[in-house]
Design a protein around this nucleic acid. Sequence first.
DNA 1: ATTATCTATAGATCTATAGATAATGC
DNA 2: ATTATCTATAGATCTATAGATAATGC
Lengths: 185, 185
Amino acid sequence: MSEETRRRDSAATRQVLRDAAIELFAERGYDRTTVRDIAARAGVNQALLFRYFGTKEALFEDATAGHRREETDAPKLVAEMLGNLLDPSSSARRDQVLTALLRTLGTDDEAAAIRERLNAGYAETLATLTDQPHAALRADLVLAWLFGISLMRGVAATQPLAGADPAVVRDLVLPAVRVLLEKSS
Amino acid sequence: MSEETRRRDSAATRQVLRDAAIELFAERGYDRTTVRDIAARAGVNQALLFRYFGTKEALFEDATAGHRREETDAPKLVAEMLGNLLDPSSSARRDQVLTALLRTLGTDDEAAAIRERLNAGYAETLATLTDQPHAALRADLVLAWLFGISLMRGVAATQPLAGADPAVVRDLVLPAVRVLLEKSS
DNA sequence: ATTATCTATAGATCTATAGATAATGC
DNA sequence: ATTATCTATAGATCTATAGATAATGC
């Protein structure tokens, strides 16, 4: 609202920089996002980015951190994640982080940070989904599928997947996932 | 062998540039690969890259083009693709192109070229795999899975998927894919 | 004579820093 | 007095081009 006079507030400035960064990293990936773009979108001076985060890399790591998943009922997780990924209106923030990670995968410098976030945010919870042998591997495979779908829909935008009805996608994916994660009860 | 004296040969020079380019694009993605890197690996002068391809972008498109899949028996395709993706020794060339495309997905400028190559190279053939409704969508979903696996193994290198035995991965993935592509016969 | 290759560099970035200015809290 | 913010710029890239040089084929 009162955009005109912004009080001096280093915490707020840090936060608008983080917000602008995650948006731009999601839109363009790490390399194509410049520190000046970030500062411009945040509406703050570009030098402040370095004052508060040190380097562009540190800002990336800060901006994509801290989205550890809440512990949740395992069987519902896949459906929920799929819903998040498919529905553009839901949970925009987590989607942005995921998209930023996917778009930045090509950047070796960030590979370690990306691995850690993917693992902490998603794989750990998924691994509790099955009691079959290779539980962690099964979880990774499910995750790989969700990322592949997200990648082709959101980043590559290949048709028909990018334009498909989320409900149809879900109804196709879930039975196949069920085969992979089937409990031997 | 006789590296020392290379005859002047524009066709050969174009080809070593293409080869070096696809290697580096697969290793680092589009943005992190510089034209000087490419020329250095090819062992030719950097100005020749522009003489023969005009721009870096045109070189990318040239180097990733022309790997249209041979028409093949549909049911075997998924297993074969999976084998290609998982086995590091097989079909290094196609893997390089795929990896280059995956690593470059973040680059909007190349998005159209990438879409076209993924579609022409993989999705079209996969779409013949099933007679169920949403055949093309099912094919895209399988493709998304293969890409996701390739991405997590080769690019993000997340464990345990990155270190998993290819045979185990195949045995987990194929039954789930079968559910998705099941013919109604 | 033609054309493949090389030298040298323009011009446009981009990250990061040093140091000046100005708004706040005591 | 402290510290948030801004100005100005260093220094290191990167893509692309103009024009010189040198190896080939007739």
